[in-house]
Nucleic acid binder design. Sequence first.
DNA 1: TGTACATCAGTGAACGCGCGTTCACTGATGTAC
DNA 2: TGTACATCAGTGAACGCGCGTTCACTGATGTAC
Lengths: 218, 218
Amino acid sequence: MLETRPQAQPEVPAQSRRGGDTRDLLLDCAEKAVLSKGFAATSIDELISAVGITKSGFFYHFKDKGALAEALLQRHLDREETLLDELFQRADELNEDPLHGFLVGLKFFAEMMTDLPEAHPGCLVAAYTYQDQLFNKEVSDLNRAGVLRWRRRFRERLDLIAERYPPRMDVDLDDLADMVSALVEGGITISKVVREKEVLPRQVLLYREFLRATFLGI
Amino acid sequence: MLETRPQAQPEVPAQSRRGGDTRDLLLDCAEKAVLSKGFAATSIDELISAVGITKSGFFYHFKDKGALAEALLQRHLDREETLLDELFQRADELNEDPLHGFLVGLKFFAEMMTDLPEAHPGCLVAAYTYQDQLFNKEVSDLNRAGVLRWRRRFRERLDLIAERYPPRMDVDLDDLADMVSALVEGGITISKVVREKEVLPRQVLLYREFLRATFLGI
DNA sequence: TGTACATCAGTGAACGCGCGTTCACTGATGTAC
DNA sequence: TGTACATCAGTGAACGCGCGTTCACTGATGTAC
């Protein structure tokens, strides 16, 4: 029942690569694999044969499989943060107002989702959450801190907005902040399940519409 | 790194149970395990020792591990449908109007989520989606059909509502229907990650607020 | 500029354990006549 | 009411394969003097 598709061979042989490259390649392959079949079903063997090193080479880079999990999540959280930071900063530069900056940022975000070539790759947060017991406490805490950081950051932004535009509806701003995360995680899941990549960007745009109504009225 | 907590021993020994009971017990244990650590990390050994039969006994009930996956998802989808059917039917009986019936139903739904004793158990849809490659096409299709059925059913309901209450915002009704699924899946994920079970019901209530604004204005 | 040593990025062989699966068999209950 | 057979819900032993992990070793590059 396990339908393991063979991974592509690496273009560059192991010898002519530097160590950091090999490590990153391992993480790239692991990310792809974890997102499509989960962490437990991702074997070290498949990663090393995709990257072109031996098993002992893997254990040079990661002390055990758990270290791979941790490095993978950390890299994901870092990248996500950088990406969204740039995106919302760019949106803010186009617009002085915190509300309109956010609205433009959400539009950028939805466009980015739409432009991704294949169906959306998915998010490690959900993938890890549903395999929680496999990981040690540090990994779970890393994941939790990641989500809570977004709550805090969106919340700060919403506070600024609410100062200038008193909300027309009775909504809790923490809930409104969490809704971004929930809708992204859920949107990715539903996109994957129904195999329609438009679902995720459309949900983001719908959230944007609700946000506008909350602060600007209908 | 695998932190496998021992499952509770069954109260009733295998001999004094009927066959259907044992099968259901296996499914119960499997559901719990799959939700907390994923399908691949759930071993047949742990299920049989929790239920109190031998490994061959397991293969009497399921021809292989894939059959367990299929039965598990099918049971989950059936239960979910029955539960939500009853819930929204009960809400409709209290209110003639399709909008207010829906609003009351969402309130019931949120209350149900709140009243669950422990943190929310999670949803097999997301758990399966992030382990897609492990399953055969029938399982993926089952999952997909499940989500699409909810899109259709909520959409029908929203059509009825929109007939009576022309929407005040420019929203696509399919998106609005999908948002329920996305928010539930995402809400469960976020609830689990941050370990706050209130997140899910609060997201449902926030959706409810937006729905009210869409059809009734602010 | 040459030599000595350290570090980096791996190799290769072996390990034992747990996994899913198979197969021949069995004791208790149900049904037909 | 008794006997024959069928079905249900398992048992017990064995299978081989793949998994994560360890350990002693190595060839290429970097650095100190």
